[in-house]
Structure formats: C-alpha cells, structure tokens
Amino acid sequence: MTTAVRTTPIPARLGVALVAAAVVNSLIALVVSALDAGGIAMGLQPAVFLPATVLGVALGTGGWFAVRRVAPRALPVVVPVVLALTWIPDLLLLGQGATLVNVVGLMAMHLVIAVSVVLALRPTVR
C-alpha cells in the first residue's frame, strides 16, 4: 500500500519565499539604516532592494532548475559559489563610499534571497 504525499505547488512555495525574502530584507534595511545613520545607505531604499529581491528570486529559481536538470548533485556546491559571487559587487561598494555596515547588510540580503529560494525549491530535488 502506498500513500500519496501532498506537496505544495512550486509557484505557491516561490510566492511564500518571495514574500518572506521581501519582509526580511525590509527588516535588514531598517536595521542597517539605523546602525549606519549618516551613511549613504546604498541599496537600502525599498525602491531598490524590493525589485532586486524579485529579480534575485527569479534568477535563483532559473539557476536552480538549470543546474538541477544538468547536474543535480552539483547544487550543494553551485549555490554557495553563486552566493559568494553575488557578494563581489557589494564589496566593491566599499570603494564607492559605502560603509562596512551597509555592505554587510547588502550581503545579508543576498543570503536571505538564496536561503528563501533553496528552502522553496529543495523539495524538487530527489
């Protein structure tokens, strides 16, 4: 006898991941802005980070399915490598007037997006 396992559809999981990432990124932006009063607040405005969050979830989803199709066992390596690569532009902002607090906040936002995508799509890997 087999039992059917009900799983939440991928679009619903991604929707929850997107909302969760947007909420957490908003909180990060608020905390970083408070800690970095007087800083340039690069990328911490909702008009900047909310569309970037949507784009990050979309690109992360596309990347996840592309890697999963070609080499599913590579996901545990590819995800952290891609996350680290997204931090390079953040670090470069240090030379453009952003403070360390600002940059760490942006890096945390990228981590939030990566974690939300992985948690939403992990059930798709067998």
Rank of each mutant, 00 (worst) to 15 (best):
A37H: 13
L92C: 04
A108C: 11
R68I: 05
A17N: 04
V81R: 00
G105S: 07
N102L: 03
L111I: 12
L27C: 15
V57E: 06
V57Y: 07
I10C: 03
M1D: 12
A74I: 08
L18K: 00
H110E: 09
I28E: 02
V78H: 02
V118L: 13
G56A: 07
L59V: 15
A84Q: 03
G15P: 09
V125L: 14
G15S: 06
A4R: 13
G56L: 05
L121F: 08
L91S: 10
V81I: 15
G39W: 02
V19H: 02
T3A: 14
I88N: 00
R126P: 15
P76C: 03
V101H: 02
T2V: 14
V118G: 00
A29D: 07
V101F: 04
A98H: 02
T3W: 11
I40Q: 15
A21I: 10
A12D: 08
S26N: 13
V81K: 00
T61G: 10
L75V: 05
A84P: 11
I88V: 15
L59F: 14
S33D: 12
A66N: 03
R68F: 07
A34S: 13
V67H: 00
V57P: 07
A12C: 07
I113D: 02
D90T: 08
A17C: 11
Q45R: 14
P80F: 10
T124G: 02
S33L: 11
P46G: 09
V104Q: 01
P72F: 10
W87E: 02
T8Y: 09
L50I: 15
V125S: 09
S116G: 10
A34P: 05
V24P: 10
A98V: 08
I40A: 14
L30Y: 07
G56F: 07
L59N: 00
V112W: 04
A74D: 03
V48S: 12
P123H: 04
V70E: 05
A58Q: 01
A71W: 13
V54R: 03
L119V: 14
G56I: 06
T3F: 14
L119I: 08
T86I: 05
L83K: 04
A20M: 12
V31L: 14
A41Y: 10
L27D: 05
F49S: 09
V70M: 06
V82G: 01
A21C: 10
R122C: 01
V24N: 05
